[in-house]
Design a protein around this nucleic acid. Sequence first.
DNA 1: CAGTGAGCGAGCTTCCGCTTGACTT
Length: 765
Amino acid sequence: MIENLVIVESPAKAKTIEKYLGKDYHVVSSFGHIRDLAKKNLGISIENNFLPDYEIPKEKSKVVSELKKSANEAGDVWLASDEDREGEAIAWHLAAVLGLDIDKTKRIVFHEITKEAITEAIKSPRTINMNLVNSQQARRILDRLVGFEVSPVLWKKVQPALSAGRVQSVAVRLIVEREREIISFGSESAFRVTALFTITDEKGEATVIKAEASKRFPTDEEAMKFLELCGATEYIIESVTVKPGTRSPSPPFTTSTLQQEAYRKLGFSVAQTMAVAQKLYEAGKITYMRTDSTNLSKLAIGKSKEVIAAEYGEKYSKSRQFKTKSKGAQEAHEAIRPTYPDNSSITGTQNEKKLYDLIWKRTMASQMADAEVEKTTIIVKMGNSPVTFNATGEVIKFDGFLKVYSESTDNEGGDDEKSIIPQVSKGMPINYKSISAVQRFTTPPPRYTEASLVKKLEELGIGRPSTYAPTISTIQNRGYVLREDRPGEKREIRMYNLEKGKITPTNKTEMAGKEKSKLFPQNIGMVVNDFLVKNFPVIVDFHFTAEVEEQFDEIALGNIEWTKMLKGFYGPFHETVDKALENRDSKIGVRVLGNHPQTGEVVMVKVGRYGPVAQIGNKEEGGTVRFASLNANQLIETITLEEALKLFSLPRNIGEFEESDVVVGTGKFGPYVRHSNKFYSLKKGVDDPFSIDLERAKQLITEKRESEKMKLMKDFDDIKVQNGRYGPYVTKDKKNYRLPKGCDIEKLTKEDCLVIIEKSSKTKK
DNA sequence: CAGTGAGCGAGCTTCCGCTTGACTT
């Protein structure tokens, strides 16, 4: 019999702690929560003062029975779940399920996994804090009430299988509202004037500096007029300002900042970052990856100091402890850092190496000296205009933490490039090399990426480190939003260039609105959002979470009773649910575009059973009602009558080829060409089903035939060997079969193929 | 693998936050 059983949440943590505690302690893991509200029904008895109905989920039964067995065999049970609201609740559920005495069972906490912290914790156990547990119960029950009362309203009023919740609905709202800002954004343009000046120093060496005019010019005429002035004057340096400054490193990673930087620097999706980090954590290479804390253990700070001094020298080291500033942070863990700071690199997959490198650098940089910079600003005066040209340059005097790491930012325009400015003095005359006025368009606010959405949610205090990635998956799985690339549209920009007193106009094109991996709201997301905003304004308010969190904190402090808090919330909330159900507004999400120009029938768009659809005519008026699905990227909100009517022109016959009709249409998988019962997809972003001609259609048909021929390696009529994405395979009756390893395709016979098919169907059973 | 949009109504969908595997394709 082992004297002491310690229960923690994570198995990787259990392994480490057991090493620190020695042979008198057996450390096991609960794998997170072991009980939850009943899966079916509401799981809450509202009339019994919100009495929760807890059950052990099926997938947890094995863990729980093992825990029970260990607990029965042990002398003392120590509950060592995380030091936060959820951790306290886990401890309480464990006590309840394992039949431990709530008032006597030892509860210990540590927010870093070091030998010192753990032995210290063992010395000072406390008991379960029921106030903290109750604040968790309030949180859990409130979320269930919101999710399980609002979602069914959506099923009834909008579409089945939809969902709403305190976190996901706000995430969707952010994306929808951002899209509307972009839709209503009116882009304006103005000419930005930049000059290249040549500066010759005492030694006669020439350098070119770039300076920007202090004014922008709204029209071509004004820009031209200014350039004319520029060509007819002299330039003198009016002032030179040199300002020293410092830059400080960012704090070490939390879940949210790791997701943002891994996206910006490595192009990882939020889910990918978490999966790779999980592997690093399980291999003992980094500390826990779901954390809101920027705290580092004394051990980590000390070790980092040694590493930095040895690697870069004493003057690069500066120990710092960062205060966590994010709203609602619970700080149960350390920041995300290398377990062993002396390992600057690791073995593993490419992605593991890259992410580890990022974490190592960020951690080291956080313990390094400020960078010292010198910012120089030069103002150049013109002889005939009050407009000045300004140039800024930055010189790094001491690189400090920048030696290791510099944080990326979200803005994409690399406009404010900083150059090195040579020695110049006030009153010095200089000459221009060239001056150009370039039309610049204002840009709408950026669409969210997964990572920037996480950042925003964290700022609002909505969601937790363990739920950022799942929330983003949920809103995509429900079809509310979609992560997409957009090619953008070509835009002409005008420019005028002044050189040697002569102005030459030139035009160039740029791509406007090009997007990569951005979150776009879908029609159903917009309809659901508008419905929620109208019917449940409190729930989708950006401050709702912050407000209820304040009350949860009061419960944790013992100032409010948790069921009272729930009663206060539920009364008015449930009324809004009833009101939303009573409302007989049948036209949810319908937008009437106008009337058919020929027949006068009403034309509308809405989200139908199979997605967004345009409709001509309606039941009430009689006659035939016609439907046509909207194309991908067409929004109910912005589609025009003309565009909607165009949808009804498909499928259309565009001619004949090899004595068969060629028909263009749009199907389940997008626009296609149909020819003698075969389908050929149109190229995305290249072909348009409404304008494609016979010539291009023929081309698509022959191209596909060519590639099919390339694919075909052996042809035994009903059985074929084809070359696919994952190498050669056998195909028969539209079913594919993998080839055995080391198979010689050249010698493969029809009989061999039949054997392969036989074997494969046997193993499937 | 290229549609679907009548009406009835059974039975189902759904939340947030803790934690990891065990499964195919």
